[in-house]
């Protein structure tokens, strides 16, 4: 399944929903969305991964980049809804603590 993502804003909170596969092939598609969230200096970004089936290290790197770049201007990034394979990867890489899953 290819990637499917969307963004919705409510006040200071932006929710980025990512479904399908976030990997070496699809992570670049997410780049412009991440750039925009960072450029707009969003106060809080919630990444909803409840529809994500598969992630690889390239996908993790994209989310880490969002986290690091947002922190530069004081923004917060959290992840919710991760399950199955993506959750296993986050735990292995200790990202579950960083993203407060």
């Amino acid at each position: 399944m290819p990637i499917d993502f969307s963004r919705s804003d409510q006040g200071d909170v932006s929710t980025l929903r990512i479904a399908g596969t976030l990997d070496v092939n699809t992570a670049p598609e997410l780049g412009p969305m991440i750039d925009k969230l960072v450029e707009e200096r969003r106060v809080r970004v919630v990444v909803d991964l409840s529809g994500l089936d598969l992630i690889d290290s390239s996908g993790v790197a994209a989310l880490v980049a969002l986290y690091k770049r947002s922190r530069v201007h004081g923004g917060q990034v959290s992840v919710q809804g991760a399950r199955d394979q993506p959750l296993a990867i986050f735990k292995l890489l200790r990202m579950d603590k960083v993203f407060t899953i």
Binding site: M1, G20, T21, D23, V24, D53, L54, D56, S57, S58, D84, Q85, A88, I89
Partner: peptide, 26 residues
């Protein structure tokens, strides 16, 4: 069309294989 990776055995092998495949290609 999606991946059914609810079983940890499947999830862990697919995760590992995908990384090795990436390394070979890249």
């Amino acid at each position: 069309m999606g991946y059914d990776l609810r079983d940890p055995f499947d999830a862990e092998i697919v995760s590992a294989f995908a990384e090795i495949y990436n390394n070979i290609v890249l």
